[in-house]
Simulated scan of single mutants.
Amino acid sequence: MQVEIWTDVNCPFCYLGKKRFNDALADFAHADQVQVVHRSFELDPDFPAGESGDVVDKLTKKYGRTVEQVVDGERQLGAAANAVGLDYITSGRDYGNSFDMHRLLHWAKDLGRQEEMLDALYLANFAETEPFFGDTERLVKVAVGAGFDETGVREVLDDPQRYAADVRADEKQAQEFGVNGVPFYVFDRKYAVSGAQPPELFAQALTQAWDDRPQPTMLADGDACGPDGCEVPQA
């Protein structure tokens, strides 16, 4: 069974949702048969690369809220993250263009290490005080700190075309699904869950998607080989 998760590194609910989903998956009886794939979704694709902005300032302008309201919202997000064992910096965070991060995530997917890359990016954004966006060297440092080869990281970042088509393909699929916010979870292209839901709901979705997997219809049954050997034709 495959679970696809559309996310963006800018998104605090994606950070929180990843932990809640993973907690549910850890208790799922068939976890070893679930393939998790992280898909790309940019929350602010028009933000200039190489720059960063203040999160509080961004949210006050985008949603028309007061600074006090946004700061209180960040505190609530911090409390929710802490409740599931995640660190969360409630002030001083930045935001920016995440396209290069998505390209790195596709590269890490080819290496079979997408989870590790995403965890490193989330921690750098939400749990560390040093600014994260708009600085290629900072991004390299984060990836290398997570155990990725520096030469490989730089080769991806130095070539803007590498994995760009993969990112765009994910975003196109999201549009076709009607995704307008993240995190967004798709189970075997049959069921979907939106938002950082509680582990119990993710557990329910995993179970339902597993139970509803298509099973082959037997049209004929004859001699065959199995784990205990092959049937011997009788004269």
Rank of each mutant, 00 (worst) to 15 (best):
residue 57 D to R: 06
residue 211 D to V: 07
residue 124 A to T: 04
residue 176 E to Y: 03
residue 141 K to L: 07
residue 82 N to Q: 10
residue 97 N to C: 11
residue 2 Q to G: 03
residue 180 N to G: 14
residue 41 F to R: 00
residue 187 F to Y: 01
residue 35 Q to I: 10
residue 156 V to H: 13
residue 52 S to Y: 12
residue 13 F to L: 07
residue 132 F to I: 04
residue 54 D to F: 04
residue 68 E to Q: 15
residue 13 F to E: 04
residue 210 W to A: 06
residue 135 D to L: 09
residue 181 G to R: 10
residue 167 V to Y: 00
residue 200 E to R: 12
residue 68 E to C: 03
residue 66 T to Y: 08
residue 146 A to Q: 13
residue 151 T to Y: 13
residue 190 K to E: 11
residue 145 G to L: 05
residue 182 V to Y: 02
residue 3 V to C: 07
residue 1 M to I: 03
residue 81 A to H: 01
residue 98 S to H: 14
residue 164 A to E: 08
residue 83 A to H: 05
residue 122 Y to G: 00
residue 29 A to Y: 11
residue 218 M to H: 13
residue 176 E to R: 09
residue 52 S to E: 05
residue 122 Y to S: 02
residue 22 N to W: 13
residue 225 C to H: 12
residue 205 A to W: 02
residue 63 Y to V: 03
residue 98 S to N: 12
residue 65 R to Y: 13
residue 115 E to H: 09
residue 158 D to V: 12
residue 55 V to M: 05
residue 163 Y to D: 02
residue 152 G to R: 14
residue 153 V to A: 05
residue 86 L to P: 00
residue 38 H to L: 12
residue 171 E to F: 00
residue 90 T to P: 01
residue 79 A to S: 09
residue 114 Q to K: 12
residue 87 D to C: 09
residue 139 L to Y: 01
residue 50 G to W: 05
residue 204 Q to T: 15
residue 130 E to D: 15
residue 109 K to E: 11
residue 161 Q to D: 07
residue 227 P to W: 08
residue 78 G to A: 10
residue 132 F to R: 01
residue 209 A to P: 00
